[in-house]
Nucleic acid binder design. Structure first.
Length: 479
RNA sequence: GUCCCCAUCGUCUAGCCCGGUCUAGGACACCGCCCUUUCACGGCGGCGACACCGGUUCAAAUCCGGUUGGGGACGCCA
C-alpha cells in the first residue's frame, strides 16, 4: 500500500469537543500504527464563524492530549484560488454549472415545497438557462454560485466500519460547491484538499456519511479515485442524544480543568467504540498504537460514562509517582489558594507527603484540593452529624484536653509516638481507641473521612494539632 | 416527512464476519463480606444482557427478512 496519510480537519467554531477529540485520536493512532502521516487542516472557509482564539484553543487541547501532527496546520481560508481552479475544471467539463438563484428565491421555493409536498431539492432552474440568459445575468453582475451537476444513478462507497453504503442519486440535489462570494463550501474544499494532500484514509464522525455521498460524486466528476473512508460512531450523552453543553462538560479543556489526566482521557475515549479484543482496559499510548485497527471499531453509538472515566483517572493517579503527581497538582492547589508559588519551591518534601496521603482517595486532581483543604487551612466547620456523634459530651472535651496535654509533652512528633500516646490514653480511660480517634479526627480535620489519623497529625505537626484540638475543646464547651 | 445507520448486562464492551467450545466473558456503577481508627485502596462474592417476531439449519447471540426502539443527515454551516 502507498503511504498512509490521514488528516484531522476541525472547524474553529468551538472548543475541542470530546467527539472531535476521539476522531482525532483515531486518526492519530491509525497514522502512528501504520507509520503514516497525520495532517492538521483548519476548515475555516466560513470566515464569519472562525476565530484565531478558537483555533489556538483547539491546538492547545490537541497538544495537551499529546496528539502531535506531522504537517500543517493548513488553513482552507488561504487556499481559495485552488478551489476555484478545481471548480473551473468542473465548469469546463460540464460537471458543474452557474446558479444565479438568490437566497431569498431559494428560501421561498423551499417554503412552498415544504408546505405542499414536504420534499425539496434544487429544481435546476439555472441549468435550464439559455446561454443568452446566462450571459445577460453575468453582464449585469448577478451573484453566481457554482453547483455540481449530480448525474443519474446511484453512489456507492465502501466504509471500513460500516461496510458498503449506497444511495440513490435522485435523493441528492445539485449542491453548491462554490459560493457566490467565491469561497468553497465544505464538501468541495474537503475533497480538493484531500486530493491535494494525498489523503489515503478519511476517518471522521458518522454524521458525515451523508456528506460522503456528495463527496464521492465530486471525486467522480473530477475523474479521481476517492480515498478510503472510515466513519466512526458518534458519542452520545446519557440521554442518548448528541453530547452538548446542556449535558455538562463537552470540551477537552473542561475535563482538563476538572483535573483529568491526559493519559486517562485518551485511554477512556479510545475505548469508547474500540476495544483491544481482550480484557485489558488500561492501555498506554504505545500499546494503543500497536493494537489499534479501524476494523475493530464498533459501529454502534457509545454513551459517554463519566463515572468510568473517573475510575480510570483514579487508576492513573494511583499509578503515577508522587513527584510527577505533585507537578501536575500545583496549578490546582494554587488556584484554590491553598499554596503559593513560594511554597512550591520551599516545601516540596512536605507537599510530596500530602500527595501520598491523598492519592489513594482522589479520582481527579481537583479532588486533592477539595479533600485536602484542611491540611492547608484551619477554617473548616465541623460536620454537624459528626458533632452530635463525637462531640456529644463534656467527657469528650475532657478527653481531648488530656490528649492535647500529653501530646504537647512529646519531644518527638512521629506518628508512632502519637499513636502510642493515644492508645495509652484509651487504656487509661478504659475505652477502646476508636472513639477517641474519631473525636480527634473531627477536631483536627472537621470531617470523618480521610487518611489515617496518625499520618494526618504527624503531617500537620505538633503546634498545629495542639491549636486545633484546643479550639475543638472550646467549641464543645459552647454547645 | 425523506434518506442513511445502529441494536449483547443500567453503561463501555468480548463473542458475531468463519453458526455448535456461550448454563454469554471482562470492566464501570450498584449491593454484600473481608481488611481496617474513618474514608479510600485492595481482596472475595452477588445482581445484571443476546430488543421483538418470523425464516434458514440437526443446531443461531452469531446467517436472512420484518417489527420496534435509538441515532444521524437533509444549508451559498462544517
Amino acid at each position: 500500500m502507498s503511504e498512509i496519510r490521514v488528516r484531522m480537519a476541525p472547524s474553529p467554531s468551538g472548543f475541542l469537543h470530546v467527539g472531535t477529540a476521539r476522531t482525532t485520536i483515531y486518526n492519530y493512532l491509525f497514522a502512528r500504527h501504520h507509520q503514516g502521516k497525520f495532517i492538521l487542516r483548519i476548515e475555516d472557509t466560513d470566515v464569519s464563524r472562525s476565530s484565531q482564539e478558537m483555533i489556538d484553543a483547539i491546538l492547545d487541547s490537541m497538544r495537551w492530549l499529546g496528539l502531535d501532527w506531522d504537517e500543517g496546520p493548513y488553513y482552507q481560508s488561504q487556499r481559495t484560488l485552488l478551489y476555484q481552479k478545481y471548480a473551473q475544471k468542473l465548469l469546463e467539463t460540464k460537471k458543474a454549472y452557474f446558479c444565479f438563484c438568490t437566497k431569498q428565491e431559494l428560501d421561498e421555493k423551499k417554503k412552498q415545497a415544504v408546505a405542499s409536498k414536504g420534499d425539496w431539492k434544487y429544481d435546476r432552474t439555472c441549468l435550464a438557462l439559455s446561454n443568452e440568459e446566462k450571459e445577460e445575468k453575468i453582464r449585469k453582475g448577478a451573484p453566481k454560485a457554482i453547483r455540481l451537476l449530480v448525474p443519474e444513478g446511484e453512489t456507492v462507497f465502501s466504509d471500513i466500519v460500516y461496510g458498503e453504503l449506497k444511495k440513490e442519486n435522485k435523493e441528492l440535489e445539485d449542491l453548491v460547491i462554490l459560493r457566490s462570494d467565491g469561497t468553497p463550501t465544505y464538501n468541495f474544499a474537503c475533497v480538493v484538499d484531500d486530493v491535494e494532500m494525498k489523503i489515503s484514509h478519511v476517518i471522521r464522525g458518522n454524521d458525515h456519511i451523508a456528506n460522503t455521498f456528495k463527496q464521492v460524486l465530486i471525486y467522480e466528476a473530477l475523474g479521481l479515485t476517492p480515498p478510503h473512508f472510515a466513519h466512526i460512531p458518534l458519542i452520545l450523552a446519557k440521554d442518548r442524544t448528541k453530547m452538548s453543553k446542556r449535558h455538562g462538560a463537552v470540551s477537552i479543556g473542561e475535563y482538563r480543568e476538572e483535573g483529568f489526566l491526559r493519559e486517562a482521557l485518551v485511554n477512556y475515549i479510545t475505548l469508547l467504540g474500540w476495544s483491544p479484543k481482550d480484557d485489558r482496559e488500561i492501555l498506554s499510548i504505545d500499546q494503543m498504537i500497536e493494537l489499534f485497527s479501524l476494523e475493530g471499531v464498533n459501529p454502534a453509538n457509545p454513551i459517554f460514562d463519566k463515572e468510568k472515566l473517573e475510575w480510570m483517572n483514579g487508576e492513573y493517579i494511583r499509578s503515577y509517582d508522587n513527584e510527577k503527581l505533585l507537578d501536575l497538582l500545583f496549578p490546582f492547589l494554587i488556584k484554590e489558594n491553598l499554596i503559593t508559588e513560594e511554597m512550591v519551591r520551599q516545601k516540596r518534601d512536605w507537599l510530596l507527603r500530602f500527595v501520598s496521603l491523598l492519592k489513594e482517595r482522589c479520582k481527579t486532581l481537583k479532588e486533592f484540593a477539595e479533600k485536602g483543604k484542611y491540611f492547608f487551612a484551619f477554617d473548616y466547620q465541623y460536620e454537624p452529624t459528626a458533632v452530635s456523634k463525637h462531640f456529644n459530651s463534656a467527657e469528650a472535651a475532657k478527653t481531648l484536653d488530656i490528649f492535647v496535654d500529653r501530646l504537647s509533652k512529646l519531644d518527638s512528633f512521629e506518628k508512632q509516638k502519637i499513636e502510642e500516646t493515644l492508645r495509652n490514653l484509651a487504656t487509661d480511660m478504659g475505652t477502646k481507641p476508636a472513639p477517641l480517634i474519631h473525636m480527634v479526627r473531627l477536631a483536627t480535620t472537621g470531617t470523618t473521612a480521610g487518611p489515617g489519623l496518625f499520618d494526618i497529625l504527624e503531617f500537620l505537626g505538633k503546634e498545629e494539632v495542639v491549636k486545633r484540638i484546643k479550639k475543638a475543646v472550646e467549641f464543645i464547651h459552647k454547645i
